[in-house]
Design a protein around this nucleic acid. Structure first.
Lengths: 140, 140, 140, 140
DNA sequence: GTGGTCTAGACCACT
DNA sequence: GTGGTCTAGACCACG
């Protein structure tokens, strides 16, 4: 887990970690109830300062991805986050628009975009299915 | 044009301007050959310092969206940017993945995502078509 | 003559014209005594404002490449410019260093550089010879 | 390091700094992995505003000479830049042509040019060798 | 008129 | 400590 961080990216390390964690959760590699890395473990694995690791976890908690229980550790939260429908729509719409603009800028045709979208979606579902059938989480 | 910037956003003002300009180009609201805002105009409209406006335009030039001629102004470039196919694929794939992860995190179902994708794509095409048929650019 | 100017280059148009003129003189395409373009001719051929053309010619005169005789026009000057030996050495050395740094930065090997240098030099001499044998100047 | 800037030169200060840094890298005085000056150090040594120093370093990063990590500093990059062969050839050819034209303009004979080229090349290699054998970088 | 550069000084985020 | 951003205001070169 957390294999590829780019220290010379403009996006801060702690946010890169957050993104990757969210990715793992979305892909099903980290499942609700799974225990998350401790600050120390994360710092070692990501080769990052402990402060940075702590900040990443803090941010994940703020985003409702994990939940820390004192004395027990931090765990992946179950279910979708509570969010008002209108905001949900807005976020999704914005994500779609970003994709379309990127594609247009790259000169991707509508047909190609549809095709790539479908393929990616299927690959995504396949990976999630694989994770659902796997009984023991092993995410590092 | 370029009216709404969020000074409290983590993404810098000059990049917010860049994003909006790229959006206008992708949507066809700004077409190849069109004159872009001058640094001074942009600074006034975006309520930003001249330096910041200049930086945004320089960034747009670096990205190949725009071409500036000292003493004359800057103009929208025609055609898609030159980019090696493998990088193009990687960028598109990454954009697709971001969308899927965002959707998954929001708890959007596959069916809903497909539907919203198609709708957004059609709306996008419609808007581009409208701009293509409009002879006189008036984007401010 | 003066075919390829790049209006969106950081180097000003009038200097681009100067460089090209010096190139033609060095290659022998323009020979001492040849009549140079008038400001108007230059402006038309280079598709440039007359002020810009005038400035280019003015700069060429300052550099000792051409000489304007009132009422007669401007002519290419003969012979090498008068310059003190030490400065000459310094200029040449600086030009050599620029080449070496550029080559090193590009990862060009010493052998390749030697080879390319020799080839370029021969091509250069060949072109000069061709111009010397041509009786009538036709440089536009 | 980076001591002598010419404020009255037409080439901007931040580019003069870039040139000198590239020179040091090409000569081997700055080696891959070496730490580069911080923005603040550079500003002091070059007697330049912090903004100007930062701009120079950003430009070096854009050119692939250096890699900066926020909060850590900037470091010299290893290896030659990725560049397509055709562009590489074009750049080298252009650099060669500039040298030849300069030499011709100065009235340097072919023989002298060959001699000076060889000498400069040997001096260049010698300096690089000296730097390679020196274990501790001390470039300021 | 255009964009480009530079300084001064401030504030912020990241490690 | 690091680099990044922004403003204010000045000066310059180009077309």
């Amino acid at each position: 887990m957390i294999p590829d961080l780019d220290p010379s990216s403009p996006v801060p390390l702690y946010l890169q970690i957050v993104e990757q964690a969210r990715r793992l959760v979305a892909l099903g590699a980290l499942r609700p109830g799974d225990r998350f890395l401790t600050v120390r473990e994360l710092a070692v694995k990501a080769r990052v300062n402990r402060n940075t690791a702590a900040r990443a976890i803090q941010e994940l908690e703020r985003a409702g991805v994990v939940r820390t229980r004192v004395g027990q550790g931090t765990f992946v939260v179950d279910g979708a986050p509570r969010i008002e429908p209108s905001r949900r729509q807005a976020i999704l719409d914005s994500a779609l628009e970003k994709l379309l603009i990127e594609a247009q800028t790259l000169g991707v045709t509508v047909e190609e975009l549809r095709r790539r979208f479908s393929r990616k979606l299927e690959a995504f579902q396949k990976e999630r299915k694989a994770h659902r059938e796997r009984p023991n989480p092993s995410t590092d």
